[in-house]
């Protein structure tokens, strides 16, 4: 019997078999599902920020940033026996939640770009994405078959 693994903000978890990985209410953050269909080893990451190198203070988790979370999660999957060349990604999030006159930066867009760049460095192709726009998304990922459901308050549910 698989477990339901809840991935919090700036967190990642690995599942396999009948496990279901869930991350709730992605706003400008990005959820990244990595799926190896040959072994079923599956990772879900929830990053908040694009780039750890801009942060001077070392007092923070690597799971928060696109450039550190994704290589770390992939390393763990490899250590658990995943077949890295077979791994594919699905991503969601990166919304602009509030339209304000003085958004210092469009962090959602920067997160999307940073996640895509990190995946490219890791040579992981993106199979599907549901990113941008202006609403929150919950991401549910079945390790059994790599299926990913996106649910949102306004748009309902869809599979990507």
């Amino acid at each position: 019997m698989g477990q339901k693994l809840i991935v919090g903000i700036s967190d990642w978890k690995i599942g396999k078999g009948d496990d279901i990985l869930v991350t709730y209410a992605l706003g400008s953050c990005i959820g990244t599902c990595l799926y190896d269909k040959t072994t079923g080893i599956s990772g879900l990451s929830h990053i908040m920020l694009p780039d750890s190198t801009a942060i001077i203070d070392g007092n923070t988790t690597r799971m928060k940033f696109a450039d550190t979370a994704l290589p770390d999660m992939l390393d763990r999957m490899r250590a658990m026996g995943a077949n890295v060349p077979a791994i594919k990604a699905k991503i969601a999030g990166g919304a602009v939640m509030f339209q304000t006159t003085n958004s210092k930066f469009n962090i959602g867009q920067r997160n999307i770009e940073a996640v895509k760049a990190a995946l490219q460095r890791l040579r992981i192709p993106i199979l599907a994405e549901d990113v941008g726009l202006n609403y929150g998304r919950t991401m549910t990922f079945w390790a059994q078959n790599g299926a990913v459901e996106i649910s949102s308050t306004i748009m309902g549910k869809k599979m990507i």
Binding site: I9, C29, G136, R137
Partner: peptide, 9 residues
């Protein structure tokens, strides 16, 4: 929207 998405800002 969902509180989590709002509080992510």
């Amino acid at each position: 929207d969902m509180l989590g998405a709002i509080m992510s800002v």
